[in-house]
Design a protein around this nucleic acid. Structure first.
Length: 394
DNA sequence: AAATCGGGGAA
DNA sequence: TTCCCAGATTT
């Protein structure tokens, strides 16, 4: 990996020239607004450009300034992020906007110490903001950059290792042309996104192919070296879709998730864990599952009678795969069922499953909602799919 | 160093 | 199916 200085100068010059004509017209590139740059970079973490664009447009329209974001209800921010995933990004972004209001008078800071201190801003995003918004010579090393550099300089270090990113940052810093940090960093990522793609890179139209060590070795297809991630572990969940009765007629019972952990503070249909099945989740008897769900609902103060299986759903997170069996329930206000429900609630208390924490520190929040109410509350995609299907076929 | 934290598009 | 995407935070 002893690349010559000429090779580096060639790389930077050719890449910058290519970028001038090849760069995409993206919403956050139309202004040099540090707030726009910041929001876009948070959204782009682990997320493709095409996915981000509509979210970015809506977000800026709704929260045009740092102050607007800082003062907005958290529920609105989460709703604007709904479907984009990694929801702590949204909550950290708003917390950081409040930091910027308090510490920096609403101006996105332009030095490494203060930018890196913002919640949700790590090494990559710090470098991206400083270079793109303020043209400072800081590296912005993401997955694209590591792929491009590992190929061009034939670096065979595992990019999953911590030390490799530091090595890449040092190299990327050397490559930044004087006074062109913003364009160069974006050019590096643009090349990774458009030409130097993970599979079947377009070497023949690459602006730096002539001196690409990886390609000259015929090694572009096995670079970058990356250790495999663990597959998500399966989990089985029993989900309750409870139709309201009386005052709650036409509404569905939902709850809000805890303040931390998976899908923090998002709304969802209540569900409880089911034993892991050695085979398939399907084809199991509905009776015991519905009984357990009814008991758990009783523990949350909802008297409901099972109406049968509604659908099955799957959802994959980064580290968990949910296999969900959804059951329909009918809320029961009738006095005749009070005794039976009270008994099942008692049985539930003795059990371990939880719909709501009956004795926890902070009580779980519940609501009965209509289809229209979904427009105000943020749900994970899997529950949006279930609820939309239910409301559309009802 | 390893786990946690979403969702979807491309092959 | 598998990969991986303009990663950060927590353990």
């Amino acid at each position: 990996m002893q690349e010559s200085k000429e090779s580096k100068l060639y790389f930077s010059k050719e890449l910058l020239g290519w970028y001038e004509t090849a760069k995409r017209d993206l919403p956050w590139r139309r202004h040099r607004n540090p707030y726009y740059i910041w929001v876009s970079e948070i959204m782009l973490q682990q997320t493709r450009v095409d996915t981000v664009i509509p979210y970015f447009q809506r977000f800026i329209e709704r929260f045009p300034t740092v102050q607007a974001l800082a003062e907005a209800p958290e529920e609105d921010v989460l709703k604007c992020w709904e479907g984009l995933g990694y929801y702590s990004r949204a909550r950290n972004l708003q917390a950081a906007a409040q930091q910027v209001m308090e510490r920096h008078g609403g101006i996105v800071p332009d030095n490494k110490k203060d930018v890196s201190a913002l919640k949700g801003v790590g090494p990559y995003t710090s470098g991206a903001i400083l270079s793109i918004a303020y043209n400072q010579p800081e590296p912005a090393v993401d997955g694209n950059v590591m792929r491009v550099l590992s190929r061009y300089f034939l670096i065979e270090e595992d990019i999953m290792k911590t030390g490799t990113r530091t090595l890449m940052e040092d190299l990327a810093t050397e490559l930044i042309p004087q006074g062109r940090a913003g364009d160069f960093n974006q050019a590096l990522m643009e090349l990774g996104a458009l030409i130097c793609t993970p599979k079947s890179p377009q070497c023949l139209i690459c602006p730096v192919m002539a001196h690409c060590a990886g390609r000259l070795e015929g090694a572009e297809d096995r670079l970058p070296v990356k250790s495999k991630a663990k597959p998500p572990r399966p989990e089985y969940r029993l989900v309750a879709l409870v139709e309201g009765d009386g005052e709650q007629s036409g509404r569905v019972f939902v709850r809000r998730r805890p303040d931390s952990g998976l899908l923090a503070r998002m709304w969802e249909l209540p569900h409880i864990p089911a034993a892991a099945e050695p085979g398939e989740g399907a084809g199991l008897p509905d009776g015991p599952a519905m009984d357990r769900l009814a008991a758990a609902l009783g523990g949350a103060g909802v008297l409901a009678a099972p109406q049968g299986a509604l659908m099955e759903a799957e959802h994959t997170f980064s580290h968990i795969h949910w296999n969900m069996r959804v059951f329909r329930f009918q809320q029961v206000d009738g006095r005749s069922d009070l005794i039976a429900v009270a008994e099942s609630a008692s049985a539930y208390e003795a059990n371990g499953d939880a719909i709501g924490s009956s004795s926890g520190d902070d009580a779980t929040e519940y609501r009965w909602i209509t289809k229209e109410d979904m427009g105000e509350l943020a749900f994970p995609n899997v529950f949006i799919r279930i609820l939309n299907q239910y409301f559309s076929t009802k």
